[in-house]
Write a protein that binds this DNA or RNA. Structure first.
Lengths: 341, 341
DNA sequence: TACATAGATGACAACGTTGTCAACAGCGGT
DNA sequence: ACCGCTGTTGACAACGTTGTCATCTATGTA
């Protein structure tokens, strides 16, 4: 069965192509009666505008891309759904584009992608969103973009963004541990190329300083936002003469790794060791005990990013970022006061 | 900077539009020398064919959609990446389309989607792939599709598919438990609308029968492929007078729920209780002890589905499904011989 | 009555690409 | 010299839509 075109609708409704176009695009100056006739024809023929023709006529396709390189499926799916929801409302399509953030050809790849599909713009997830060189290359090619970054405020570098205050949330988590009575609190870093890592560390550092607890470098271990790194990092901390009584993992995966290591070492969480994560990903709820963490409303963040991008595409160059998303502390069973010595 | 079109290339290479088109599409009958001249111009102008124009000219866009309604992010991401890899090779774009498998408007939604974007075809993930009514509606609208299903062989109902032999793998898992010495083996069902659920149950049933162990209905609990159902189901089994010594959860989420319930009940896994899952999702590795499970190579399965779809789109209507994917048993720390009474 | 004004509608071109067909050159065979 | 072939190239239309401009009608005003 041939798919109906605007021509078929025009013939059936006894009007010109242009009038149908006007009805479809909700343009004014169509008589009520005419509009009704056209709508009826559209309905009867099950007419759907051809996106290819539309985008050929206009300068760009009504499609944006989501660019990411992040091993965390739950996070990515949330971002995807958040962006998709807005795309759906706005009549935009979405292309997903996982890629290698370390590739030197990234800028060329993305430019080629955008040109090939005449993409209207890009949403960049971390860590791509924090690669200034890339941002400049894309901007030089006049590709609209919005990025999701970790920062306390809009960095004001001219690249539009939606920002999440990881520092503040990490502060809250550390504060929670301190208030439980912990003073020896381990910290496991996330990946270095993610800006969220130093932000979260800063929150940890600031909280300790504010509560008058000295930073102990031995309690701080590098890592890469992975379960295995959490496991290894925890083992390293367990070998210290003076073990930490609490460990703050830079994300839930790391914290789950710490939990596994604690279990392997025969420790009883939270009594022998408190553990906190970050993100409120499913793994934090599906551990036993469930992990204290910081809830990030990733879908809302992605909603915001997509809305911002589409507003800019539509010509509202002043459309501005958010007032700042701030993850909320979620206290669960993995944290408790330290065991008295 | 304006994006170069085929016209610009033609002008610069001193040839006609059509000749450029021939070079771009690797058509024969272009002199070596001409081809080189055109390629040079393409390079210099960084020309990229406009996908919208191409698809407007042809019958459909070079874009397919992946349709799913599955709460498991790891599974979905794997399928996405598997499909994307093939799309990349073949020069196809991908639209992702999460949806509600229970929606009655699903067939209409998908038809509208396909028409609007002039999609070349659909890849359907479970459980959409197992909804015959939907398949018929799509086929009636001449929308090419390939589905990923759970079955021991191609059902031969005319809808092309890639199939995964869940029954066989579930048999292997059950056999593993039996061979460890378990005779009271609990089974937690997955979601009813997933065809994989009865398949996995069948594997459990068949193995028990083959080893002469009577099926005990009390040990079989309904569920929905979720952690929480695993938790609840396990608690129910724990209340039995004669508890199972092993529990087979229909997927890793369920098994992780069982593990949490066991932990909450103070049991020592695997000595007090053996637990097995299905899928080899990250949660199975990130539990402690890590879960015995069946490894599904989801990306390879998705690769295959995408290849099959694209072959059919390209006119090879006889392109046929796989020889059957069969998940492999992966033995980890969560299973051990039962404790002697 | 004439005239300006606004509202409704349509004709037409253009977006970038590819399929169809025609043109032309060079070649070997009659 | 003529024919028919093959290989190479280009002119042109068409895909479905929307922006531009022109036309036409009805209405209100001088």
């Amino acid at each position: 069965m041939r798919i109906a075109t605007i021509k078929d609708v025009a013939r059936r409704a006894q009007v010109s192509l242009k009038t149908v176009s006007r009805v479809v695009n909700d343009e004014p100056s169509v008589r009520q009666e005419t509009r009704a006739r056209v709508l009826k024809a559209i309905e009867e023929l099950r007419y759907r505008p051809n996106a290819s023709a539309r985008s050929l006529r206009g300068a760009t396709a009504h499609t944006i891309a989501l660019v990411y390189d992040n091993p965390n499926p739950h996070y990515i799916i949330s971002v995807q759904h958040g962006v998709l929801a807005i795309c759906g409302e706005a009549g935009f399509g979405l292309q997903i584009h996982p890629c290698n953030s370390k590739s030197s050809a990234l800028a060329d790849d993305l430019t080629a992608l955008a040109q090939r599909w005449r993409l209207a713009g890009l949403v960049l997830a971390p860590p791509m969103s924090e690669n200034t060189e890339l941002l400049r290359a894309l901007t030089d090619n006049a590709i609209p973009l919005v990025r999701i970054i970790s920062a306390a405020s809009d960095p004001g570098d001219g690249y539009p963004c939606v920002y999440v205050d990881d520092r503040d949330a990490a502060y809250a988590i550390t504060e929670h541990l301190v208030q439980l009575g912990h003073t020896r609190i381990g910290f496991l870093w996330g990946g270095k190329q993610h800006r969220s890592s130093p932000e979260r560390f800063k929150g940890y550092e600031d909280a300790l300083r504010d509560y008058g607890i000295a930073i102990n470098k031995k309690l701080i271990v590098a890592g890469d936002y992975s379960f295995d790194d959490g496991f290894r990092g925890a083992r390293r901390l367990f070998r210290l003469k003076d073990r930490p009584s609490a460990i703050f993992g830079s994300n839930d995966e790391i914290a789950a790794g710490v939990l596994a290591a604690a279990r392997a070492a025969g420790m009883n969480v939270p009594y022998d060791l408190s553990i906190a994560g970050f993100e409120d990903s499913p793994i934090s709820r599906q551990s036993w005990p469930a992990l204290t963490t910081a809830r990030q409303d990733t879908e809302a963040i992605a909603n915001h990013a997509a809305r911002l991008l589409i507003a800019r595409i539509r010509g509202n160059a002043d459309a501005v970022g958010n007032e700042g998303f701030r993850p909320d502390l979620v206290v669960r069973g993995s944290t408790a006061p330290p065991r008295p010595r």
